[in-house]
Every structure is written in structure tokens, then in C-alpha cells.
Design a protein around this nucleic acid. Structure first.
Lengths: 152, 152
DNA sequence: GCTGAAAGCGTTCAACC
DNA sequence: GGTTGAACGCTTTCAGC
């Protein structure tokens, strides 16, 4: 799908504040509210904008432990199979197949260390896991998801 | 700050759809719209909800390459200093100090491999970088940020 | 594909329980 | 804390360009 500069501008506005009104966005991009709505509807329909969500401070809701676990699977396992293994584990926030010695990088969030250990055990219990290597997050230095500018 | 079950329910609703109306949320949690608004205002003021944002498909806006780079710094470097180094690099989406052999795990997004290589060079150019190890993301298996339930 | 107007709905605030 | 009611603004649709 082809996006013009107004589309990019609208997306930036919605990333900054997903609850801003179409009229506000329209002022910022130089369009009327109905025109903005039509573009946003189109962007959603085309799958460019996949949804609107609240950003929540993990600590405030009891999430105090975070880690990245590199998982190596022995033998031949498919991404589909790995996804099926990881999806039921609620503590898994994100997972990526990656290049390098490990097969998958798993982002895990837990209430505390005991809870993380429990989640890790469930991760390791799956068939085919050869080894895991955990990097516990000590602090978050930076977190700015969804930046559209820079080089798009 | 103390959150009751209604607060958690409201947060879940807003994570699912940040643009839903206070009346809709109120129906779901059994409260009137003004009551929901008052709670949401409080949650924002207390820093539990840090904002509302659009979720965007990275590929649709030209972000085709993603990697996790583990950076090891030699000598004694402070998290503050690392943050200062990483912040100006727009391709850095997130960064965490972590346990293990590396000091920092950096999540990088770029338009393509050439662009990623460029960003990596800027990462490595900083004073005190002893080594970096990149894991290129081949595919995203799972991505569900901001899940509040499970164990909170 | 945008604008403008009109109907309906959401947000917001005061007053009150 | 919660609700109700009213004023105001926003969303949404559709005709017209």
C-alpha cells in the first residue's frame, strides 16, 4: 500500500496520542475531520494501523521482573510449532526467530523472580529445547515503540 | 498506588481498544461514563497509564529489518551515560541493561540491512564499546505488549 | 477525494446521594 | 467513592463539488 506524507503525519499523531480527535488531527495535518476519518478508516482496513492501545507502566500493575531468553531447539522444529508452544505461556510478551546460535529470542514479563523461574521452567519443558540462556533486565534505559520517522 | 479490580478491568479495556468510549467501558465494568472517566484521569495522573498509542505494522511504514544487539562496554560506564549515547540513535527502539556477559540489550529497527548496518556502526562508534553481538530478527512469532492479566 | 452541514452521540462538569 | 442531567463539542454520514 502506498502512503503519502499526510498519511504518515496522521499516523504520527495517532502514535503520540491515540485518543486525539479527528478534528485535532485535521488541524495538525491541514484536513477536515471527515477527511481524516476516511484516511484512518482506510489505514485500519489496509492493516497499516493494527489497533489502538494504552501504554501501561508495568511496575504499577505488578510486573516487576523482565527478561530476554534465548532458546535453542535441537533437531528440526518449525516456527509454527514454536508459536504453538509459546502462545499459551501468558508471561511471553514477544518472541522472534533470530539469526545466530539460538533459534528464538523470547521476551518474558513476570511479577517477580519466583514467577519468572516458573515461566522459564514452562518454556524449557517443551519438546526439543536444547538450551536456554536468560538475560534478566536490570533496568529499562529506553522504550519508544512505534516511531515512524527517521527513515520511513 | 493501589488498584482495585475495576481499575484492572478498565486498563484491560483500554489496552484492547484505546479509542473505546467511556460509556462502552462503563457497560463492560458496570459503571457510568463519568465514573470511568474519573478513574482513567486518576490512572493517568498517577502514571499507571502512561499514554495512548496506535499500533502500526512496521513493514507498512518501511521498517523491514529488526535486530537485537547485545553490547558489551569495557571499563566502568554508567547507565546514564549509555542512555545518553543511545537516545540520539533514532533506530534504537528500546534498550535494557541486562545480567550476563553483555551489559546492554538494544532493540533496533531499520528500513533494510544497509540501514541497519549504518545504525550498528553508530552504536559501535561510542566510547567504551568492547564488542557487540547482533541477532537479526527473521520473523516475529508473537507480539502482545501490555498484557495486564495473568498474575498482576 | 475533499468540504460543509446536520443529526446523533460522547465528553465533561456541576449538583447531589 | 458513585449517579444524574445538561451543555458543549466531536463523530459520522451524506449531498455537492
Amino acid at each position: 500500500m502506498q502512503l503519502d506524507s499526510i498519511d504518515h503525519h496522521i499516523i504520527s499523531c495517532l502514535i503520540e496520542d491515540a485518543r486525539s480527535s479527528f478534528r485535532e488531527i485535521g488541524e495538525s495535518v491541514g484536513l477536515s475531520a471527515p477527511a481524516v476519518k476516511r484516511r484512518v478508516d482506510r489505514l485500519r482496513a489496509e492493516g497499516v494501523i493494527t489497533g489502538f492501545t494504552a501504554r501501561v507502566d508495568p511496575g504499577s500493575v505488578g510486573w516487576h521482573t523482565e527478561a530476554f531468553v534465548a532458546v535453542t531447539y535441537g533437531g528440526n522444529i518449525t516456527p509454527t510449532r514454536i508459536r504453538a508452544i509459546l502462545t499459551p505461556i501468558a508471561e511471553v510478551v514477544a518472541a522472534y526467530t533470530v539469526s545466530g546460535d539460538a533459534d528464538v529470542l523470547v521476551h518474558v514479563r513476570a511479577a517477580d523472580m519466583a514467577h519468572f523461574e516458573q515461566a522459564l521452567e514452562r518454556l524449557r519443558a517443551a519438546d526439543g529445547v536444547a538450551r536456554t540462556e536468560s538475560r534478566i533486565v536490570l533496568s529499562t534505559l529506553l522504550d519508544r515503540p512505534n516511531v515512524v520517522d527517521g527513515r520511513a
